[in-house]
Amino acid sequence: MDRRSFLKTTAATATLAGLGLPAWASDEPLKIGFIYVGPVGDMGWSYQHDVGRRAIEEALGDKVQTTYIENVPEGPDAERALTQLALEGNQLIFATSFGFMDATVNVAAKFPNVKFEHATGYKRSENLGTYDARFYEGRAIQGTIAGRMTKTNKIGYIGSFPIPEVIQGINAAYIHAKKVNPDVEIKVVWAYTWFDPAKEADAAAALIAEGCDFVLQHTDSTAPQAKAQEAGNVYTFGQASDMEAFMPSPRVASTIDNWAPYYVERATAALEGTWSADATWGGIGTGMVKIGEITEAVPAEVKAEAEKLIEMIGSGEYHPFTGPLNKQDGSVWLAEGETPDDGALAGLNFFVEGVSAEMPK
């Protein structure tokens, strides 16, 4: 990766309306940096963000120069990596993991003329925006397929960390599996990592040993797919990227994080001087969440049902969290026909009724 320094434009250049952030008016390319929590070859989360980075280069050519730092642990190392990117002249920096949030806030305050964006977080400032995808919409599709196809009535879920994003996914998968199969139950194993193939394989093995014939995941490697393939008669879904190497079975569909259009849009805004510190939360309807090919391992009638649900969610006709729904303790969460607002979802910290797993403290 080329990390050449260049002279930044002066304060006399055009500014963003109301923000005082310099628009790009230089003969040099706009430098854009990324930090990834895993390796770009994880074939999941970090890989998909890097697909977006490369889309910027393809769309904007020599107007931009991108770089990335991979395998950045959440915590102090993230602050050092972000600072490094800012000192190297990057004027737009994307921090792509929830645990980078506080580090991004701190570094953004130190570099007020640099534009920062944080994926899946909620803290913003004049030069710090956030972006996220409604992954729970994809989990609803997975739950529907798993609920229809399971023979053991046991669905497994590998959780990374007990944060709202992950809790949303577990709940959405269970709700929709239960809708099509009243006998289904969901078992959760917490891996406490985003990317660790050994831990992910162990978690998958534990779920399979408990009789789960579907294994869903909110972790980033293909290790659960490999473990399912080894076990036989166990199905999985691609996570973050398509993970097509495991088609048609055990990977029978996937939830794909489609960051590329967003990244191109935001880089273009930075070039044109229209960037602002927005909060974006896109889903199936906006194309930020895509459902990968549903394979021939899925019965035709189940595929049709899943495709109908995709259409209804994408059009806004149906919300995956539509009442009546109770909390795990039996108290009412959503009344008949009621749906939660985004604030309630962003702070979701409980399982729905019927999920037997305990919430980690």
Rank of each mutant, 00 (worst) to 15 (best):
P340Y: 03
M288N: 10
Y262C: 05
A17F: 02
A344G: 05
I284Q: 01
Y157N: 03
G75T: 09
G232N: 15
P22I: 10
T10H: 06
P164D: 11
K154W: 10
A226E: 05
G287R: 06
A191N: 03
A133I: 15
K151H: 12
I208L: 14
I291G: 02
T96D: 06
K308I: 03
I167D: 09
L271R: 02
L92D: 07
F195W: 10
E265L: 08
R4V: 08
A304R: 09
Y131I: 01
E311S: 13
D132R: 08
C212G: 12
V51R: 15
P250G: 11
R148Q: 13
R134N: 12
V188D: 01
V264W: 12
I35Y: 03
G156Q: 05
E338K: 13
S160F: 00
V298F: 09
S125M: 04
P29R: 02
A55Q: 11
G129L: 03
A198S: 10
V352K: 00
D50L: 10
R148E: 14
K110L: 04
V355G: 03
T295K: 02
W333V: 03
N326A: 13
F6V: 05
T144Q: 04
E265V: 04
L309G: 01
I167T: 14
N113C: 00
A17R: 04
L345H: 07
S331C: 07
Y318L: 15
A109P: 02
T130A: 15
A231C: 14
I208W: 12
E126C: 02
A357K: 05
F111I: 03
A279S: 01
K290N: 06
R4D: 10
I93M: 05
E353V: 02
H49E: 02
V40P: 06
L7R: 10
A17K: 08
T268F: 13
V352M: 01
G238Q: 09
K179G: 03
M149W: 12
